[in-house]
């Protein structure tokens, strides 16, 4: 979908679409928290009971988890393990890879069930994959229009801007 060195760019329109897909999934699966993470550990969106949750750390650890499991998969000749499930005493985590690029994480307790979550994840993954395809097309169009990949809002920054960050 994207090359290893291209930036992931998220626009407001797609972000709102993603958020509404996640919110719908949250309702339909009775889960506590759902978030979407880039495979490199960047949090893309989160919904549900996130107030007391360190979502940045969760995103980084989830990506590490997927990366480690992906390494294991390759060692035994599998492409990837696309679903991980961690069962706790109260809360459980269901992790799945969407469109080969992003990670969908669902945290749920006894108000839901693994079966329901798996069912909803399937539908949600399809919807999300559609959004990311659109996003990829948009990025390609931007690059084509600009002639380069410099659609970045940082094209105009100066050394002073950067120095100011550290003052």
């Amino acid at each position: 979908m994207f090359g290893p060195q291209s930036s992931l760019v998220m626009y407001d329109e797609e972000y709102q679409r993603i958020l509404s897909i996640l919110e719908k999934m949250l309702r339909e699966s009775n889960s506590k928290v759902i978030f979407l993470v880039d495979k490199n550990g960047q949090l893309i969106a989160a919904t549900g009971e996130t107030a007391n949750l360190d979502t940045t750390s969760l995103a980084s650890l989830t990506a590490g988890n997927i990366a480690a499991t992906g390494g294991l998969a390759k060692l035994i000749g599998e492409k990837e393990f696309s679903i991980l499930f961690h069962e706790g005493e109260k809360d459980n985590i269901h992790i799945s890879i969407v469109g080969g690029r992003v990670i969908l994480v669902v945290i749920f307790d006894q108000r839901s069930s693994l079966g329901l979550v798996r069912l909803r994840v399937k539908k949600t993954s399809l919807d999300l994959a559609g959004v990311f395809e659109d996003l990829a097309k948009k990025a390609m169009a931007q690059i084509a229009a600009a002639g380069t990949a410099s659609a970045s809002p940082f094209a105009e920054i100066t050394d002073d801007d950067i120095d100011n960050l550290f003052n």
Binding site: F2, P4, Q5, S6, S7, L8, V9, M10, Y11, D12, E14, Y15, Q16, D38, N40, G41, Q42, I44, S152, P153, F154
Partner: peptide
């Protein structure tokens, strides 16, 4: 690979 988020006006980089 940086992540530029226009929705939350954030840019994330990994070192």
């Amino acid at each position: 690979m940086s992540f530029i988020n226009y929705a939350s006006r954030e840019i994330n980089c990994k070192i």
